[in-house]
């Protein structure tokens, strides 16, 4: 072995030594990295779960907000239809009243005509010509009075319809109660997602410095039905009525309003028994009398 070869071997040994020194320094870091990865995996799994939950909740929230839009749209359209009808009927009432004023003027004119006739001929009151004139005026007056009465009857009917329409508008405003429950359901979903994110952030030990205006606002949760919907059709009421009437078959998840009414007809007495099985309507149903 010549000195050059020896020198090369020494160089290699030095390189190996440096490699070992590097390894000694790197191993604790790698161990730390390994530990970090071990710790972060469950956290990542939890994040994954949370994100999955959030991603399923968000479309639900979006769908519920769409329900709010649909409900308000439906109710607004209902109200607009009713208002159209009210305006049309009020227009008719207005023209009827104008017609009535015209009738009143004509009747008044006839009255004056009759008065003049009496004044002009007080002596020959019983003459044939006078009687004929008076009769003609009286007949015309009667016809006008009849038409006058008709206009009043029509006005009253239209006003009654307007009153009914106004009442329908009042009932359409139930949409506010229904949409408030739909929005409460969305709030609940958003709040549950926020809580999950906050839990994750706390686990990551990175407390987020939030400005006072960004601090979560404490909102008193409102009671709600997540399936609240504004659908003014008879079917939903019929379902309830069917149960209360005892005529609904329990295998069938939907009922007719009539059926609900029938069931509740049996329950209508405040002294009704406390269990459905002992309810008079239930007995009727089992005995096949319904």
């Amino acid at each position: 072995m010549n000195p050059q070869q020896m020198e090369r071997i020494l160089e290699r040994i030095n390189e190996l030594k440096a490699l070992f020194i590097f390894g000694q320094r790197v191993i604790p870091f790698l161990e730390e990295l390994f530990g970090f990865v071990q710790n972060i995996v469950p956290l990542m799994q939890e994040m994954n779960k949370s994100l999955r939950e959030s991603s399923t909740k968000m479309p639900r929230a979006a769908s519920q907000l769409n329900d709010v839009t649909r409900a308000t749209e439906l109710a607004t359209n209902e109200i607009l239809d009713i208002l159209d009808d009210i305006l049309f009927k009020l227009g008719e009432v207005q023209s009827i009243l104008n017609q009535s004023v015209d009738f009143y003027r004509k009747i008044n004119r006839l009255e004056r005509k009759l008065d003049r006739l009496l004044e002009l001929n007080p002596e020959n009151i019983a003459t044939r010509g006078w009687i004929q004139k008076a009769k003609a005026i009286q007949d015309e007056k009667k016809t006008l009075l009849k038409a006058f009465r008709k206009t009043f009857t029509r006005s009253l009917k239209q006003l009654n319809d307007v009153k009914e329409n106004a009442s329908n508008i009042m009932f359409s405003l139930q949409v506010q109660d229904i949409t408030s429950q739909q929005i409460a359901a969305v709030n609940h979903l958003i709040e549950s997602v926020r809580e999950r994110i906050e839990q994750l952030l706390n686990r990551l030990e990175t407390p987020v410095a939030t400005a006072p205006e960004n601090q979560p606002v404490s909102v008193q949760p409102l009671p709600f039905d997540p399936q609240a919907s504004y659908s003014p059709n008879d079917h939903r009421q019929q379902t309830a009525d069917a149960i209360f009437s005892g005529s609904a078959t329990l295998e069938n998840p939907t009922f007719l309003q009539e059926e609900i009414d029938q069931l509740f007809r049996g329950n209508i007495s405040p002294d009704a028994p406390s269990t459905p099985s002992s309810h008079p309507n239930q007995q009727k149903r089992s005995s096949g009398n319904e």
Binding site: Q227, P232, Q237, I260, F264, N267
Partner: peptide
Amino acid sequence: IRDRQDDVLKAYEYQVNSYIVKPFTL
């Protein structure tokens, strides 16, 4: 607003005399 069968049945069991689903009419 609760119109599901189990809700109506529950009300019936609790001795409610009549049940109206929202939105209701006059």
